[in-house]
Design a protein around this nucleic acid. Structure first.
Lengths: 205, 205
DNA sequence: AAAACTTAATTAAACGTTTGTTTAATATTA
DNA sequence: TAATATTAAACAAACGTTTAATTAAGTTTT
């Protein structure tokens, strides 16, 4: 069964995202995935290589449709931004465990090679958004905003609600066991907020 | 010398912020702080208690002046928001190592008691900002925006640039060894962006 | 002020666990 | 039969923590 490799990957992803890389032992992973401890090293060599494989595996399934949005000539810049927002929210909420993993790795200054590959995966996405805003400015639709920090605001807002459930719940006056990420209403709420925010931030008049 | 305790705290703060709690060993801390390994346990009991002491110690020195901004009746709501933005940026940039520590802890689901105390420290601050925006809405100065998500946007934008230097630098087309957090121009840039953003987001007309 | 005593600070070494990883034997599949 | 998968056991290294001995500092007694 080649499923066992994937079973290990999925289990490790969950544990890494929840407890961190150093906070998760191979024995934790093996037990939760119901495999022998040695299987992890047998399939992936080392713990660090397992981590890299997870990033590879998930990156492949997470590749974006942002290009299509950018190239679509039948919609206005602000409509493109709205499409980007919905695409972002959908992607990050759906793959939120992977996203947590990535964000943790970005904060930590360990495993530099991984940092680079993560950043290199992010930058093209950011550049697409950048281009959309730039062309909106050229067209006269958008104000001359700070491109990079506008992107930081988009990412940052979603991260803020996505990375700490407890903080998010307290802020929203929800009980601690509420899981906002599975609530369609909450996703919609974030979408509406970001669209309104970008409307007033970007649009002239 | 009671300085040694503080020396350990400061060193541990730096290492925890950089390498994470589980990624930092007591021997790492002791070596970098030039003290014997046993001193850490002698002073703080356990590694986890050391962590708690760091949070205590730093929380005390980081207590806010947000209350004063709120109570100041000689300035308008939007001026209050601007003051909050500058206060936030100043505080988080200055204590950015502590802030990294806190954010890491919020993402991870370990050490629940610490999570609670962190969240409980944050919520009052958030509520002050909430009150300012609410009173701005009542006065008719502000639009009826999503209160909680507006706060998430404020926090999230600053976090986004503060938590990953590499990502931040790539986004800004700076070299990898550039340290934006020590650059006054960069701080100013974030301030200007956030103020513009909140102006168009909050203000009527 | 010196000596005696008491507490606190500091050290090197050791403790028992847990860690990631490897081995060597066994079972399974092709 | 040959390659692959799986296992329990063992490995050395690193971990947080404790111990027991030594030094320094502070206090009390003479």
């Amino acid at each position: 069964m080649k499923d066992k490799r994937i079973q290990i990957i999925e289990t490790a992803l969950g544990l890494f995202a929840e407890k961190g890389f150093e906070g998760t032992s191979i024995r934790d992973i093996a037990e939760k995935a119901s495999v022998n401890v040695a299987m992890v090293n047998y399939y992936f060599g080392t713990k660090e290589k397992l981590f890299e494989r997870i990033v590879e595996y998930k990156s492949a399934t997470t590749r974006g449709l942002l290009d299509e949005i950018q190239k679509n000539e039948s919609i206005t810049p602000i409509q493109k931004i709205e499409a980007v927002i919905d695409s972002y929210i959908e992607k990050l909420f759906t793959h939120r465990m992977f996203h947590r993993l990535i964000q943790q790795e970005l904060i930590l200054n360990q495993r530099e090679s991984l940092q680079n590959s993560i950043v290199n995966n992010f930058i093209p996405n950011a550049n697409i958004v950048k281009n959309i805003i730039e062309s909106g400015i050229k067209k006269g639709d958008f104000k001359k905003v700070d491109l990079e920090l506008t992107i930081a605001t988009l990412n940052g807002t979603i991260n803020q609600v996505l990375l700490s459930r407890k903080f998010c719940n307290r802020l929203m006056n929800k009980s601690d066991d509420y899981i906002p990420y599975e609530d369609i209403k909450f996703k919609k709420r974030v979408s509406v907020h970001l669209k309104q925010l970008m409307h007033s931030h970007l649009l002239n008049n």
